[in-house]
Amino acid sequence: MATTSTLPSIYNSIPVTVPPHISLTTTELLAFPAFKAWISRLTASLRAENNPDGYTLRSLEITNLVRFSSSKIGFVMLNAVVRDAEDKLSLPGAVLLRGPSVAILPLLHPTNTPRDNLYAILTLQPRLPGATTSMAEIPAGMLDDHGSFAGAAAKEIEEEVGITISEDKLINLSELALEGSPLLDSSSGTKESVGLADAPPVGSEAGEARKLDGLFSSAGLLDEMLTYHAFVHELPEEELSQWKGKLTGLRDKGERITLKIVKFEDLWKATRDTKALCAWGLWKGLSQEGRLPY
Rank of each mutant, 00 (worst) to 15 (best):
D185R: 15
L183K: 09
G254A: 00
S217Q: 07
A31C: 08
T63E: 05
R272H: 14
V76F: 00
Q242S: 15
S218W: 10
S241H: 11
G189P: 02
L60N: 01
E159R: 15
L183A: 14
P20A: 07
L65I: 05
A131H: 15
S218C: 12
H229D: 03
R127S: 15
K284V: 13
S5V: 09
S134Y: 06
E159K: 14
H233P: 01
V16N: 04
G147D: 00
L222R: 13
E86G: 10
D198K: 11
P100T: 02
L30D: 00
M135W: 12
A80Y: 00
T271H: 04
A199N: 02
R291W: 11
S193Y: 08
T164F: 08
V194T: 11
A197Q: 01
R115A: 12
S188G: 15
E255R: 13
F216C: 09
W280A: 02
N64Q: 10
L29W: 01
S5G: 06
L107P: 00
S70I: 12
I104L: 15
G254M: 08
G54R: 04
S71R: 12
D213P: 06
G74T: 03
D252Y: 11
S71D: 15
R47W: 11
G99Q: 01
R127C: 15
T132A: 06
